[in-house]
Write a protein that binds this DNA or RNA. Structure first.
Length: 276
DNA sequence: AAAACCGCCTGTCGGC
DNA sequence: TGCCGACAGGCGGTTT
């Protein structure tokens, strides 16, 4: 579910309400959410600990704790991290973990499909978290430029959609924002990455930045499961141009949209505005 | 290097 | 109405 804009929205919404709060209780309701840590160690090290900061890398959320520990979360498809100021609110059916702050509320990890993950590591020690360790450039950082995109695509024979989804290249794009970026840039998802001209790379770079910023400004895209850290829906689903518009018409030229599997994912595009 | 599978889970939707 | 397969914001591992 959540891609960069959703994860960033969760980060911004959670940070002010969890900062400096002390974890008094850890209720582990789905043990397999832990990747490289035993339930015993997880509970022992977190109880009595405090949240000192919350940062994002790609689609990962990293909570800084005391004792130089970090809690690394990934929401995968249907994970939610929601702060409840009122602990008497009934538990959602698929609640994996509850971090209780006594009378100060609780942070709950809810996840219908249970693909979401948690890791507890020493600060910066990500050797076991391969996806985090090998993340590519942050697309909203100054490091992401037309030149850096050129360096990633040059000599690549991969389809551009597959490259955009590769977290080792660019961190944070998923199926929605890859399709939206390619539409905005007027590029077919199956174009070989290395075939893009300077002008096309410029358009793609601008499109990625614009789409991600616009989506963050709208608190992300709620198709079904995604919620902010306050449990609210985003609104960017109302601004999607192409994703999920099967059977619809191109908002730019009016022709019927097409969709096909690219890199194993359903991809939406306009056959007129995005030529092969 | 790249692409195609499978598995992990649960819920929803469309077709028959 | 009911059943059954396809599919869904992701990603790691294995095979081709």
């Amino acid at each position: 579910m959540p891609e960069l804009p959703e994860v960033e929205t969760v980060r911004r919404s959670l940070l002010p309400v969890i900062l400096h709060k002390t974890i008094e209780t850890v209720e582990l309701r789905y043990e397999r959410i832990l990747q490289h840590c035993s339930p015993q160690v997880f509970q022992e090290k977190l109880m009595g600990n405090r949240f000192l900061d919350l940062v994002r890398r790609g689609k990962y959320l990293i909570f800084s704790l005391e004792d130089e520990l970090e809690l690394v979360a990934h929401l995968r498809m249907t994970g939610r991290l929601i702060f409840y100021s009122d602990c008497s609110i009934p538990m959602a059916k698929h609640t994996s973990v509850v971090f209780g702050f006594g009378s100060e509320g609780a942070l709950r990890f809810e996840d219908v499909r249970k693909f979401g993950t948690l890791d507890l590591v020493k600060r910066g020690e990500y050797d076991q978290i391969k996806g985090l360790k090998s993340l590519g450039v942050e697309p909203l950082s100054p490091n992401f430029t037309q030149a850096s995109l050129q360096a990633l695509t040059a000599k690549s024979t991969a389809k551009i959609k597959a490259l955009l989804l590769d977290q080792r290249k660019i961190a944070g794009l998923g199926n929605i924002y890859a399709d939206e970026s390619l539409f905005l840039a007027g590029l077919h998802p199956e174009r070989p990455a290395g075939s893009l001209s300077d002008h096309e790379l410029s358009r793609l770079h601008g499109a990625i930045v614009q789409v991600l910023q616009d989506a963050i400004g709208n608190q992300g895209t709620t198709l079904r499961d995604y919620r902010t850290g306050y449990g609210q829906e985003g609104s960017f689903q109302n601004k999607l141009q192409i994703y999920g518009k099967k059977g619809g018409k191109c908002p730019r030229c009016g022709v019927h949209l097409e969709h096909r599997k690219v890199a194993g994912r359903t991809s939406h595009f306009c056959p007129s505005c995005q030529r092969e």
